[in-house]
Design a binder for these strands. Structure first.
Lengths: 344, 344
DNA sequence: TTGAAAGCGCTAACAG
DNA sequence: CTGTTAGCGCTTTCAA
């Protein structure tokens, strides 16, 4: 089977390699007779085209890279799954690339991966600066995902984090919560993601005439990459120190799971004693008890939009960066009180 | 930057392409002087080798495929992460391939992917039969993962599912549980995985002189691929129908999470009223409340063993199939009573 | 419509 | 130790 070339098929069928090539690629201008003769030879020999040789000849690999912090975060697993499906329909394969949120890994990705290995890159940056991104060689098409601020020159797809944070916080207020804390933003280096979500949280409080109490901001640094997340420990400590809150707006679902655990360990009823919300709507938020109220990005739209932009770049589009905001919704489950519940 | 060839570097440095090639690949027998001259040219030009051309010339891609049901299952995400790290150290990249547990996808993988795209395949089969696997063309090196029975001709890495199931069940018995149910095996088509875990469960019960009551087997079909798992619904129904059990040995962690939710919805205390165990020890089992007692495969060993076997095959080993059993342990958390607890 | 031949960029014999 | 050259298997003009 190995080493079966276009030439072998051509010999067997008594035609030229280019005719066989045309048949293999299903191109027009091949007579039905030829096509049949060649197809027979292909079938009998069990010929399969060598993708690498084709890649070298065409200059395209049919691969795109999808780079993010880590695959064990269910949000990225779901994003990756969705992206693979979208890409597959267009004949692309997706290569997952973990950066571990490290600056070097993100840099390396942009320089090292260009080497004709992929036709384009989808990157959800977490460490690299906007300036460095802007300066990056435009060698290989690049589309950015997520809320990190992106240079105007690059394509970028995100959801409106500020609005979503505002909405989910407003929901809690409408349900009667008055002492709402924000949980899970970074302690040492605030990420752009956390910044935007904090902003929306603050806006919602102010719009309701509620003060923003710094004592209700529970920051901590996430567990090291590859480690089991353990958000329940710092949250537990905050509760033990007497955090004065009737609701927790968590930075993401993983933090929210930790919050649920910390609350339950302390015998707090959710949402009666403490409402909890998350962010991402991954599978686990439906399976948690109580079910987690959370921000749900429209992953299908996000993935197809991002892939679409990248495909256009690959096909030669060279215009200015396009910044697209895709939709989200709030999924209400049992971890937050129903809006109809009224005041305290 | 694009279209910068070995020849360009050679011209600039005033040497031949093969010398440049030798420098790029860091091969011996190049004088320090030459090396320096060439390296300077490489740096000034910003040359990067074209991986695809190298692939065509060497016949190796540096890719291996890792194929499994679905990436959103945290076990596979963690396995994939671990495998990527192991492979990276050996200079390989891992291509994730979702089969969705479909027979066609697994077949396609073995025929379609061989086309010089990857140097080898790691497959955790779920639908394809042992006979079909045995008959598969040995075109591209293949190593099987998981407990599906594998043909003797192929390499295979797994943990001892029967023993692990026996151990975790015996643990529950030692802690005083007497009415232990098994939860989450398939209703319509029992998988080999479930079969082995059921077997170990049964053996432990019999070894303790406890009868095996068919009424304590709670089977149901998993949610369709890509859907939110909802094991809590069928488990809830079983509880409502009066399932007579003081412990649930769950097929895997996802089922266990559903069991926790179903139990908590009904006000059952875990483990006092109902002990629950899982399988996989994914990150979520530490974050659940109560923390989940679960079987923990040694993922690092599993990944490096499987990769090692595959690398040997890629490097030409052509001997008989090797079947390796890697270690596991039981991680005890709060969802099961401590062994010291004694009788009821 | 079909065929011949020149690359795609790199590696690896072999010669010098 | 360095250079020359013939592939790797496919695509793609360009002639026929």
């Amino acid at each position: 089977m190995r080493g079966l070339r276009l030439q072998d098929v051509a010999d067997k069928a008594g035609v030229s390699v280019s005719t066989v090539s045309n048949v293999v690629r299903d191109r027009p201008h091949v007579s039905a007779k030829m096509r049949h003769k060649v197809q027979t030879a292909i079938d009998e020999l069990g010929y399969r085209p060598n993708r690498v040789a084709r890649q070298l000849a065409t200059g395209r690999t049919g691969f795109i890279a999808l780079a993010f912090m880590q695959i064990t975060n269910p949000y990225f697993a779901e994003l990756g799954q969705m992206m693979s499906r979208v890409a597959e329909r267009a004949g692309y394969r997706v290569l997952f690339e973990e950066t571990g949120a490290s600056l070097e890994a993100e840099r390396e990705l942009l320089t090292d991966l260009d080497s004709s290995l992929v036709d384009g890159i989808l990157l959800q940056p977490s460490a690299i600066s906007q300036r460095e991104l802007a300066r990056t060689r435009t060698d290989v098409p690049l589309v950015l995902l997520g809320e990190a601020s992106a240079p105007l020159t690059l394509d970028h797809v995100m959801i409106d984090n500020v609005a979503a944070a505002r909405e989910i916080t407003a929901d809690l207020i409408a349900a009667g919560c008055r002492r709402i804390a924000f949980v899970g933003h970074e302690e040492t280096a605030l990420s752009e993601t956390s910044r935007q979500r904090l902003l929306g949280y603050q806006e919602a409080l102010q719009a309701a005439g509620l003060g923003v109490d710094p004592a209700r901001l529970v920051a901590f640094d996430a567990a090291p990459v590859g480690t089991v997340p353990s958000a329940h420990l710092p949250i537990g400590r905050a509760l033990d120190r007497g955090l004065d809150a009737d609701a927790l707006v968590c930075r993401d679902d993983l933090v929210a799971f930790g919050a649920i655990r910390a609350a339950q360990e302390r015998g707090l009823r959710i949402p009666a004693d403490l409402a909890i919300t998350g962010w991402d709507n991954t599978w686990a938020s439906a399976l948690a008890f109580p079910g987690l109220t959370t921000v749900s990005p429209n992953l299908a739209t996000l993935a197809s939009t991002a892939f679409g932009l990248l495909a256009e770049r690959i096909d030669g589009y060279a215009g200015a960066g396009r910044h697209v905001v895709t939709s989200h919704s709030i999924v209400r489950r049992e971890s937050s009180p129903p809006p109809a519940a009224g005041g305290e």
